[in-house]
Write a protein that binds this DNA or RNA. Structure first.
Lengths: 339, 339
DNA sequence: ACCCGATAGGAAAACGTTTACCTAAAAAAT
DNA sequence: ATTTTTTAGGTAAACGTTTTCCTATCGGGT
């Protein structure tokens, strides 16, 4: 049905190899023939069959993206960044959702391989031992985004924001504003990578300031509104002396915390200051507007895609961790103390 | 490098056609050989090359999804629904972002065709004449989600919520609560499909209640926070007699409106009631919690994917518009008048 | 004039499958 | 017992490209 390279060759009165050469510029072709072939291609709107091509070249110009939750805004932004560079470089992306389950992640990795994808991007997935092994075994261009492998750096190519440093900066920002009693309401315990590193940044910074971190000031919850709400409640109920500030693991959690505090008539920021994380779109929708740590997930996606494509195209083989910068954003949920 | 069907055939001592038959169950094979072949396949972890297969079967088990904005939460939810059914039916999705530009949409449509995709899903795109023509010309399984073709129904297969009815129900809900001065702060003018239909539902319902729609009570803005904020401001500034209620075109717009009203010290819901649209996740994050029209975009995605797959697999050829139900969700942004 | 290297273009193999067609053996029908 | 039908399995063509290898022509150097 569809027009093939053979049809073009016949109509132009040349061999199919010539047509192929004209299309791919893989060997010189006389101007005359070239023009003739182009003519016929244009006229018939010929598009080479990518499957046939892929079969012989072993390249599909497709990049697989495995993401834990498609509907999460963070991954939305990241995907957008990924897509933007992939498209400009002539790659198409295949997105799959893992739900964060290891089993599915492995299955998807296989699926991608089946589809002869050129490389894969793991987005926002806690990459553990098993997964890393699997990634390394099939030595396929693979880069991690948003999440570092929980088993240590430098084993698999990674693009992330520096979670430790970002959280550290957030805490330091609160310290600089005169806060001493700072609670941590961050990501879940089973999140080995980002959550762990952020908590580390929190603790280190407090210690450096001569403050002993309090267990009752630390609550590790899921990245959801509900969980954030409950987590804040717990901190509120389990401490007779409340913190003067809370650093949250995400903007959603921060907003949930504010919501809880409002319900028990604690004012933000006058009674308690709140620091978010992510700088999601909606962080300015609220009153008071959320102070937060801005992470450009879009940029992260871009970088990861660039890195992956460089790898695919053989321009680099270096495995390292690339950091994208973050930034403290001051809005209205932080009150400064005059010391 | 990779193990091929020929390797399997050799090792099992059969012909490659037998191996193919065992895998696809396309013709009976004696139990003995079947077992032997399975054995070898398992042992070598053989996975048939999908490109080669697709080349001959003309089927790739891939579905293209063209979406206007990946990072939009509405499409996030929808994509999730799409993905869920695609996966269960053995299809993989290829997501591309159009940015809502016709030119890109056409280009992507071609790209999908190049990639030999089995069918395409247009998600949240205002499908106009040119696009419809293009869709019909290449008669490729194609279904529209979220957005109806703006040139009329029944020409291309569609899965949507009933925008007219949903908005009508929202307005009716306000009427039932005693409101008479109801403003409309909806989607942009250039959005021919959903925006137009919602506005229509708004006007019709008012008229039916004997209320003449007021131009100064109608503001058509982009689906963004900024635009919603400005739109509400305009309504506020251009009317000496303010409405008692506002129906918004999306939850984001509704939240923006509330934010503006709060800034000019107008209380929601005591001074003005607000009705959102979508029932986004964040609609319960706010205080007061948003009353809204719940649209299950997830479900919409599911239905669309199901419909598309039915089409691809030849189970149906009927072109029609499928509606997914909506629901009025009462929360705290609506005040009832005792009439 | 002659040879040699470069160059443009064609023929055909290769990529890894599915499937149409064929054959031999087994089962069923006469 | 013979013929016909069914069945399991093999051979090879086909899918639409790229690419290796080969050939003929052309220009330049001796």
């Amino acid at each position: 049905m569809a027009v093939t390279i053979e049809d073009i060759a016949k109509e132009a009165g040349v061999s199919i190899s010539t047509v192929s050469r004209v299309m791919n510029g893989t060997k010189p072709v006389s101007e005359e023939l070239r023009d003739r072939v182009y003519e016929v291609i244009k006229k018939n709107k010929f598009k080479p069959n990518t499957l046939a091509r892929g079969l012989v070249t072993k390249k599909t110009n497709m990049i697989g993206v495995i993401v834990s939750d498609i509907s999460n805004v963070v991954f939305g932004a990241m995907t957008k960044g990924i897509n933007s560079v992939c498209e400009s470089k002539g790659y198409t992306i295949m997105i799959c959702e893992s739900g964060g389950e290891l089993e599915r992640e492995l299955k998807l990795l296989e699926l991608m391989e089946d589809k002869q994808i050129d490389g894969v991007l793991f987005a926002g997935i806690d990459v553990n031992r098993v997964l890393v092994d699997s990634i390394l075994k099939r030595n396929y261009p693979t880069v991690l985004v948003t999440q570092e492998a929980s088993i240590g750096d430098g084993i698999v190519d990674t693009v992330v924001h520096n979670n430790t440093k970002a959280m550290s900066d957030a805490v330091q920002f609160l310290l600089d504003n005169g806060h001493r009693r700072i609670a941590y309401l961050g990501g879940p315990k089973h999140d080995f990578s980002s959550g762990k590193k952020r908590l580390q940044g929190y603790k280190e910074t407090l210690l450096k300031a001569g403050i002993e971190p309090l267990d009752s000031y630390i609550e590790q919850v899921e990245f959801s509104f509900r969980a954030g709400y409950e987590g804040m409640k717990k901190i509120y109920e389990e401490n007779s002396i409340l913190p003067t500030a809370v650093v949250a693991g995400s903007d959603v959690i921060a907003v949930a915390a504010i919501q809880f505090l409002r319900n028990v008539h604690i004012d933000v920021p006058n009674d308690i200051s709140i620091m978010g994380f992510d700088d999601s779109d909606f962080s300015t929708y609220f009153q008071p507007e959320l102070s937060t740590v801005r992470i450009s997930y879009y940029h992260e996606g871009e970088m990861a895609a660039q890195e992956l494509i460089r790898w695919i195209e053989g321009e680099t083989t270096e495995v390292k961790t690339h950091y994208v910068p973050h930034k403290i954003i001051r809005r209205s949920t932080i009150k400064a103390f005059n010391q």
